[in-house]
Design a protein around this nucleic acid. Structure first.
Length: 838
RNA sequence: GCGGGCGUGGCGGAAUGGUAGACGCCGGGGACUUAAAAUCCCCUGAGCUUUGCUCGUGCGGGUUCGAGUCCCGCCGCCCGCACCA
């Protein structure tokens, strides 16, 4: 064996060996239990970044471990390959989006290979290839047939310069993020997926996802936003249309002192038609910003329409205001305002001097308690509320709803925040929506046998707008129904559709259909899904919806795609900067010489400011390139770093010192493995025990994704073996240690394992644990006096209580601490501690 | 405002209610060497009157023989959502 482990030559050699042996190819026909380990597939931006390395290393350790434990493991990789950056590159550099994307995929695949991930590359897929998106079109048509896809007019953000629809995230301060042009609201016919049909299911389903982070479940719950209440109408007193309102607090109906409608509400429009003042007010409302900060500070503003409505119980006339805090998109766009028990209404009423009535109080005695500058939204009992008096909030809600339904002026209703999913994008680089517009037949689905509808290659990005729409020939087709000339749909699908079913295609990818349900049933749900928290809502909700939709139309059985979800933390790095001419200039880690108490710029030797440890970003230059790290330290060192120290859900601070420490440990293990000697004899019980305990503990740690703890235990075991005298036990321990680290440092492990001549360690089994060796025969007992540690005793495991007590009392240190005091009580926890209470 | 999470040495972090600080990093000292690298050994929470003692897990209370851990009340930080009626 060489003195040093040389990753530069070993890494590629073993990567080739795994490929050759097809170690990680999942066998659909296997009799073994299945385990599907999946990390969120990357967007092919061109380079792997360190966050990918962390994500994929975690998944890789789990996948390799599961294989060792005898599972048939599916651990695939693919590319979320459609999207805007490819079109931007096309516009900026004149390259074709397809060529750009495929080059990036080739680069990134090579990078992933250099990291030694145990992936089944035979199932690799890219969403931009017709073999994938054609099947997606077919699924889209299936959903259409079942009424889960529809078209409707909808307001969108329209960039008049780029001539395209922008996502909300692409509108910055009312302007297009690329063009800088003022964004217009336009009404366009858009394709929608009926996710709202699944609102209840998606919400209910969350409670079955007990292996998902609480945080993600809560975020989805809030996003779906279920609320129950009463929808009812107010009769007009001095005009001619009813006002429909929705309230989650019908119990407070006797506290209503006005009605507020949104600026876009028909009643507001009606008033504006005859009042310039009202019109001006409505315009002002529309101008108001919608950012969080603006909303927080925005003053409640209103316009009295002069209209009055009649309270359904008291018959009192309530004024109708147009108010800037009422949203047209939620509920009915109009609210019953109860200032005493809603903070917004309270502020509004205070400003416009409207009555603030108390209708809920802690008790009947508090019925006339004044408000202390804010609304009381909490629970209590009803007061000043006629037939509701004395009821709890819950009782009163039910009572009012029942009465409204009886009397026919309202009904109990569930309202959702969730909107249907608009999937139309006026872009080239996406899945063409498989429909044809015919003047005679209307919107006609493309017959399945004509799929895939492929993207044309010859497209022009020199002018703004959708290249598909202005392509000379592509959109001109004959209607599949009547045969007359017709027009192809030129919108493409939101890329979130592509990522909503890729995990199914990984499990099964026949040529002639999206997947084989029997294969899906074998692999799904994904046992462990790992990715970033940034996908907590959109991707994870869409994927859940898509899975349920396919289940509903009978394509698959599984309802939830991801059994266990893990969201990993970011990789962070300190920021180096210097102020020059009043501007902050940033420097990358490679330009910096880091010392114990500061940092200097290599170029001029002058100090730079060491800033906060934050997420790696190009603008702050605090980025490290995984490829360079692999080239310098080897794949195993960077993999080990990704697993060390920080718990995987928290941020991981990158440091030069840290990666060097990891590289040192790789060599330290190498030297230890070289000491494996089959000729030595003799038993070392302590080493045996330590190894078995570590094997058991590391297995538990990996299964719970506690990689940092597994790493610590491996360090500990390494230290113990190093210090032990040569023995058969020690040699056996070295061999087991090798197996333990093999999921984490597979290259080093293969190189060392080769000495045994037993084939690849990638195919080896996880070491067996002897339960008898998990327990120590000697234990250290803590001896406390009045709860304070005074001494420790080393005794045989299982020593009797009485004996422990006697031994404790015999201790000189204990006697000194007691200082002659009488022991009144003795607590003995066998094999743990003795506490003497004086 | 609502929801979720976090708070332990110089740093990342360990600790089924039972010896706080495992393990790693940084730092200090030493060995080996002509020298360096590499490697190995020792020290490394604070304080003190240093065989040992006192204090110490954001702050204040409580439960307990015993609390980083459980309960109550605060403070601070991070993340997500948000005029959702």
């Amino acid at each position: 064996m060489n003195e040093r482990f040389d990753p530069a030559q070993a890494d590629t050699r073993w990567q080739a060996a795994w490929d050759e042996a097809q170690c990680f190819k999942a066998d659909d026909g296997s009799a073994k239990p299945r385990s599907y380990v999946l990390e969120m597939f990357p967007y092919p931006s061109g380079r792997i970044h360190i966050g990918h390395v962390r994500n994929y290393t975690m998944g890789d350790v789990l996948a390799r471990y599961k294989r060792m434990k005898g599972f048939e493991v599916l651990h695939p990789m693919g590319w979320d390959a459609f999207g805007m950056p490819a079109e931007n590159a096309a516009m900026e550099k004149g390259v074709h989006p397809g060529g750009w994307t495929r080059d990036n995929i080739a680069n990134m695949k090579a990078q992933l290979k250099r990291l030694g991930f145990a992936l089944d590359w035979s199932r690799e897929l890219a969403t931009c290839e017709p073999e994938y998106y054609g099947q997606e079109q077919s699924l889209f048509l299936d959903l259409y047939e079942h009424g889960l896809v529809y078209r409707k007019e909808s307001a969108v953000n329209w960039d008049p310069v780029d001539q395209t629809v922008l996502a909300n995230e692409q509108v910055i301060d009312g302007r297009g993020w690329r063009s800088g042009a003022l964004v217009e609201k336009r009404k366009l016919s858009q394709w929608f997926l009926k996710i709202t049909d699944f609102a209840d299911e998606l919400l209910e389903g969350l409670s079955t996802l007990d292996k998902w982070p609480e945080k993600v479940r809560t975020m989805q719950e809030n996003w779906i936003g279920k609320s129950t209440g009463l929808q009812f109408h107010f009769k007009p007193a001095n005009f001619d249309s009813q006002i429909e309102v929705y309230s989650t607090r019908p119990d407070t109906i006797f506290g209503a002192s006005f009605v507020a409608v949104a600026a876009e509400h028909p009643v507001a429009q009606q008033v504006a038609a005859t009042s310039a003042e009202a019109q001006a007010f409505i315009e002002e409302c529309k101008r108001g910003g919608t950012t969080a900060a603006e909303l927080e500070t925005a003053e409640k503003l209103g316009f009295d329409t002069g209209f009055r409505v009649v309270h359904p119980f008291t018959g009192a006339e309530l004024p109708v205001y147009i108010a800037n805090f009422v949203l047209m998109e939620y509920g009915t766009g109009a609210v019953m305002a109860v200032p005493g028990h809603d903070q917004r209404d309270f502020e509004f009423a205070t400003k416009y001097d409207l009555p603030i009535l108390r209708v809920v109080a802690a008790s009947a005695d508090d019925a006339d308690k004044p408000f202390e500058g804010e609304a009381e939204a909490g629970d209590g009992i009803c007061v000043h509320s006629d037939f509701l008096n004395g009821m709890s909030v819950a009782e009163a809600k039910a009572t009012v709803i029942a009465r409204a339904e009886n009397e026919g002026w309202g009904e109990g209703k569930t309202v959702w925040r969730l909107r249907d999913w608009g999937v139309s994008r006026q872009r080239y680089w996406g899945t063409p929506i498989p429909f044809i517009h015919c003047e005679v037949c209307g919107v006609v689905p493309v017959p399945k046998k004509q799929l895939p509808v492929t993207l044309p290659e010859d497209v022009d990005f020199s002018t703004p707008g959708n290249p598909l729409a202005r392509h000379a020939t592509w959109k001109h087709v004959d209607c599949p129904q009547c045969g007359k000339p017709a027009r192809r749909e030129t919108d493409t699908l939101d890329t979130f559709v592509d990522s909503s079913w890729y995990f199914l295609r990984f499990a099964s990818q026949p040529d002639d259909r999206p997947f084989d349900p029997a294969q899906i049933a074998q692999w799904l749900p994904v046992e462990q899904y790992i990715g970033g928290i940034e996908h907590a809502i959109l991707h994870l909700l869409y994927a859940r919806f898509w899975t349920r939709a396919l289940a509903r139309i009978g394509k698959i059985e599984v309802k939830e795609p991801f059994g266990s979800l893990f969201t990993q933390g970011m990789v962070t790095h300190e920021v180096y900067s210097r102020k020059e001419d009043g501007r902050e200039i940033y420097f990358g880690p490679s330009e910096i010489e880091r010392t114990a108490d500061g940092a200097t710029l290599k170029e001029d030797g002058q100090p730079v400011t060491v800033g906060k440890v934050i997420k790696m970003s190009k603008s702050k230059k605090n980025v490290v390139d995984p490829d360079e790290i692999v080239a310098t330290y080897g794949a195993d060192a960077i993999r080990w770093f990704m697993l060390s120290d920080s718990p995987p859900e928290r941020d991981l601070p990158w440091s030069e010192a840290g990666i060097e420490g990891c590289a040192r440990f790789v060599q330290r293990l190498w030297r230890l493995f070289a000491q494996h000697d089959v000729a030595v004899e003799g038993e070392d019980k302590a080493v045996d025990r330590k190894v078995h305990q570590t094997v058991a503990a590391v297995a538990e740690d990996i299964e719970s994704l506690g990689f940092n703890k597994a790493v610590a235990r491996i360090y500990e075991l390494t230290g113990v073996i190093e210090k032990a005298q040569p023995s058969a036990s020690r040699s056996a321990a070295i061999r087991k240690l090798l197996l333990l680290v093999s999921p984490m440092m597979p290259h080093l492990a293969e190189e060392a394992y080769a000495e045994f001549g037993e084939g690849l360690i990638a195919n080896a089994a996880w070491p067996q644990v002897d339960p008898a060796l998990l327990v120590e025969d000697e234990v250290t007992i803590a001896v406390q006096v009045k709860g304070k540690l005074r001494d420790t005793l080393t005794v045989a495991k299982g020593t009797a209580k009485e004996e422990l007590e006697a031994l404790a009392l015999a201790s000189e240190k204990v006697q000194r601490a007691l200082d002659g005091a009488q022991v009144r009580k003795v607590i003995v926890v066998p094999d743990r501690l003795v506490n003497l209470v004086a």
